[in-house]
Design a protein around this nucleic acid. Structure first.
Lengths: 341, 341
DNA sequence: GCCGAAGACTAATACGTATTAGCATTCACG
DNA sequence: CGTGAATGCTAATACGTATTAGTCTTCGGC
């Protein structure tokens, strides 16, 4: 058995059909410009030879010669198929795959990117980004320096989730957290709540920032709108604090914290939303077992995935004009955890 | 702003360092063979130029020139991130990603493959398989004709799950269903069961075949070992049949059927495993809500994914000798659904 | 019968890298 | 000081495709 039977090339087809390699290429690409014509019988001969041999163009050579690959890179700062946050990331990938399939692109997962300091790096020794025509960045926190580098290099990319400027505006498809949180605040005010508390996770990611901004912008009307940082605090302590301040509704950034808080409230013989309303600000990022139907909103993750591919293809083929930044609306979810004070 | 600032190439580096393009390539590849030497100072000059410009080799050109890409293709007959069977496929992908990362390979998902007759096709118009060095095939049913074609083309591939020959032996990493089912039969016999029934789904996939084979091989000792095809039958009818035959233990191929059967049994006022033992033969392929801890076995999916990459890389670089076929043992799960008759 | 214009192709080259044969130059040694 | 070997590098070419400039036929029209 020969090690590698050498693949069929255009040259082989050309020889079989008695034409030049260039002709084969022209036939394959269906070129019919004014200055390029192929006689129907010649075309047929070539096509027949192709069918006989089962020839398939080498996508690599094609990419080198022309400009594009029809490969979309997907860079995930965490593993793409994580066990922990898989339920959170999954919808993005689903949307990405869906749209990629629709536009006939393959997806390249940069699993080769090495992990340094607990995080994958886009740029490293043997950078392979250019294998793809462009790249989708997926991840809770994205390194600003790497974004800058992408901008400088002029490499087409799109971030999933809003990002601050990094050596220039960053193309993104994000969720409009500010508006969503603002709407929730409006809802709470309409129900008569006046003492609101915002429980943040203490991270500086843009997604957190946007939520906080939305809260602040809409909550100024309330008698009391407070910020608490909950990271590393236990639910009991948080609850004490809320009750002491006569808070009637808590906006909880971290889903797991919301679950813990609800549990703590019940354990103390109080009810949700009777004694305290609890609102969540997006889907859980790590699996948290709960039967509670929280009032809050849903991040349009699948649609974000889809549109990120759409935006990226636009950037790649240059059909997109200007900086591409989209914020998609979140869907409000009426659960059982918002009552009246 | 220039549309595309033209990427930095080895030629640019060469000019900067005052050497030839070939030298740059040699430095980059750290070549230090007997007949290739670069003076340390030259090497330094080149490396400095590379650092200055932020040069990164174009993987496409590299692939064209040399042999390999460090790209592993993943062909899923269903969408890679399915909503329905995601929980079933996920572990395979997890293992694949894990091992790919370890060996520094990227993963290419062939989302561009068009769906014909409700199933994706590997071979089609604009075949892009060759972008990858080799390919992992994932899917419940894989088209034999396409496997034959892969064999004929000599394209490196591995199937996840055992496959019958297709124009030659098929490299695979599968689960040893026959042994696992055989062990379950042994367990049932040891507990005193003598009237066993095997409920199959009516599919012809190899994975189903193997399970049946395992049952038949080990169940011949029993007084009564029957086969029933359950596809399109409701659980009530199946239960009637089992009870009429005084069956004491049912081996159920399809997880959902097992759940339905258990429910039907309880509804009739009988108990599992008191009146009927129910054994499952692998993890659910579609999400089925149930709290029952079935006795059965677990498919080593993550490990199958990992080893499929391992096998594939061996096939690609030629270090694997002979046909690569592996069957991994399944882990028996002692649940609550096997009793004594 | 000559000219211009289609028409149907091919030769040549580019894409960016890897590899190999081979060319200078220096060096060791008898 | 002449010879062979070692050293350090470059020229040339291959990889398979896409594109463009250009060549060689026809053929219509006058």
């Amino acid at each position: 058995m020969p090690a590698t039977p050498r693949r069929v090339t255009q040259r082989d087809i050309a020889r079989l059909a008695g034409v030049s390699q260039a002709t084969v290429s022209l036939v394959l690409n269906n070129r019919a410009d004014a200055d390029v014509r192929i006689a129907p019988e010649t075309r047929d001969r070539v096509l027949r030879a192709i069918a006989e041999t089962g020839y398939a163009a080498d996508p690599v050579a094609r990419r080198l010669a022309s400009r594009f690959n029809r490969i979309i890179g997907v860079f995930t700062y965490e593993p793409a198929f994580p066990s922990g946050s898989r339920d959170f990331f999954h919808p993005f990938l689903l949307g990405i795959e869906d749209y990629a399939e629709r536009v006939g692109c393959d997806l390249l997962l940069f699993t080769s990117a090495p992990v340094v300091d607990g995080r994958r790096r886009i740029f490293h020794q043997d950078n392979r980004l250019r294998l793809a025509d462009g790249c989708i960045l997926l991840g809770r926190e994205i390194d600003g320096a790497e974004l800058s580098r992408l901008n400088r290099d002029g490499f087409p990319y799109v971030a999933v989730g809003r990002r601050d400027d990094a050596g220039g505006p960053v193309p993104y498809v994000g969720a409009d957290y500010a508006t969503a949180v603002g709407d929730l605040v409006g809802l709470a005010l309409a129900r008569g709540h006046r003492r609101l508390a915002y429980l943040n996770m203490g991270t500086t990611a843009e997604s957190s920032e946007d939520r906080r901004r939305g809260f602040v912008a809409s909550a100024t009307a309330a008698d009391s709108a407070r910020h608490l940082t909950t990271a590393a605090q236990d639910a009991e302590a948080i609850l004490d604090d809320l009750l002491a301040d006569r808070t009637t509704v808590a906006f909880v950034e971290d889903f797991a914290t919301a679950v813990a808080l609800e549990l703590a409230t019940r354990r103390r013989g109080l009810t949700v939303p009777g004694d305290l309303s609890i609102l969540t600000l997006g889907d859980p990022t790590v699996p948290v077992p709960t039967d509670i139907a929280f009032t809050g909103f849903r991040i349009p993750r699948e649609e974000m995935g889809r549109q990120s591919v759409e935006v990226l293809t636009g950037v790649i083929d240059g059909s997109a004009d200007g900086v591409q930044q989209r914020l998609l609306p979140c869907e409000l979810v009426e659960g059982d955890t918002l009552g009246s004070p």
